[in-house]
Simulated assay, not measured.
Amino acid sequence: MKKLALLSALLTLALPTAAQAQTKPVTVRLQLKWFPQAQFAGFFVAQAKGYFKDEGLDVQLLPIGDQSPIQTVATGAADFGTTWITDLLTARQQGIQVVHIAQIFQKSGFTLVALKSSGINKPADFKGKRVGLWPSGNEYPAVALMKKYGLTSSLDSTVANPSVQAVTYPFDPSIVFPDKVDLVSAMTYNEIDQIVGLGYSMDKLKIFKAPDYGVNLLEDLMFTSQKVLDDKNFKGSGMSGKEIAARLVRASIKGWDYAVKHKAEAVNIVLPLCGNTCKGSGTRSDAKEHQTWQMNEVAKLYNAGPTMQGRAGYLDPALYKSNVALLKDLGILKADPSAGAVDYSVWQMATGKK
């Protein structure tokens, strides 16, 4: 009996865990919404620290620039992606079966920036001004903010005499600000620091943070296609697409948790991975300085809402509902998205929470 017990114990020790049993990691392509930078620090940290590998995944982090991650995921060029809630919901409205699986940033980082010397002190002062906006759906937070204060813009072709003249520009504020526009779109973690680098210190700027005015359209979520979630044998791995998704989310959250607690280390992990997009502008053109700013700011967007309740990656249903209502009010969404737009079961599998 003792020999049988010993043999049983040895066999138990020899049995591999699920991750160990899979000798070859499953290749997963995660499409980032922009070029490599600290905006995506948690994913790069998860890769560098082996968190993806621990889940049996070989994750390829794909940069995209100013294209749409929705298209690369919808066409199968990528398996998963990061994007903004508006991108995802408008894609669903168009019949593209993409699905929200985790919410990384719990607060919007979108702002409009003016010089204090312009006399623009409140949204009502936007009237008659020129506003620099990003195209391709990135203008929606600004449009929502203006509509809330009864302002119209030249983006709406049905309006004869718009309150605000919109000037689209390609993500570099130096192209338009402050000579060609009175206000300019800027993310807290990127373009604001670039504007500082142009010689306009923070004490010279009036910054309108969209969430402060009730416009908290969520950004930087993780999504995939319904096809991936329905796959019973993802890339021949023996695991379902949903299980792969849960493993990816679990490792990503672990990476983000580490990154926001070890910001300097996270910046050092990001720096070798990005080129010119790592730099700021003018006097703030040092890559490490700009990425340190960025890491500090994205940490604030991550450490908000459910994250502070121990539920990182969770999409707050109430906030989601308010986002939908806002987009419907703008006419961007014609109806409520179907229930399939969000799959909470992936987050539940990843975290073991409900």
Rank of each mutant, 00 (worst) to 15 (best):
A245T: 01
S201W: 03
L229W: 12
D220A: 08
D125Q: 05
K263R: 15
R130L: 01
P170Y: 04
V215M: 04
K206T: 14
G236P: 14
L11P: 00
S157R: 13
S154A: 14
V45S: 03
F177T: 12
C278P: 04
V196G: 02
K227S: 14
S281D: 08
L88Q: 07
V164G: 06
A41Y: 02
S174H: 06
S338W: 04
Q309A: 02
V164C: 04
E219H: 11
Q20I: 01
A41R: 04
I104T: 06
Y314I: 04
S117K: 09
T188M: 08
Q165P: 00
N303W: 05
M349V: 01
R92Y: 00
I175V: 14
S153G: 10
G340P: 02
H290T: 00
T158K: 15
V164E: 08
A245V: 13
I101A: 05
G214V: 11
S68V: 14
K300V: 08
M202F: 03
G331D: 09
A350R: 13
V228A: 05
G255S: 05
K321M: 02
G95H: 11
Q93G: 01
A166I: 00
L13A: 09
K300C: 05
A19S: 15
K254V: 12
P63L: 04
Q97I: 00
Q291S: 13
K279M: 10
K263P: 09
G150T: 04
V215Q: 08
S201V: 02
L32A: 12
M295W: 06
V73N: 14
K180F: 08
K2W: 05
A48T: 11
Y200W: 05
N276K: 15
G340W: 14
A350M: 12
I96S: 05
M222D: 01
A91Y: 07
K129A: 02
A246T: 08
L151C: 03
L89N: 10
V99W: 02
L333T: 02
Q309I: 00
N233E: 08
K288M: 02
F43N: 09
I244Y: 08
N121L: 07
P306F: 04
F223E: 07
D79T: 00
I64F: 01
Y344A: 15
I70F: 11
D230T: 08
G50W: 06
L327C: 05
Q348N: 03
T12M: 03
W84P: 00
T83P: 10
L10S: 05
M1A: 15
H100S: 07
P25C: 01
V260K: 07
L198I: 01
K148N: 03
E289M: 13
G340Q: 13
G313D: 05
H262Y: 08
L327A: 07
R130A: 07
S136R: 11
V260H: 00
G42N: 01
P36V: 10
V167I: 12
Y169Q: 03
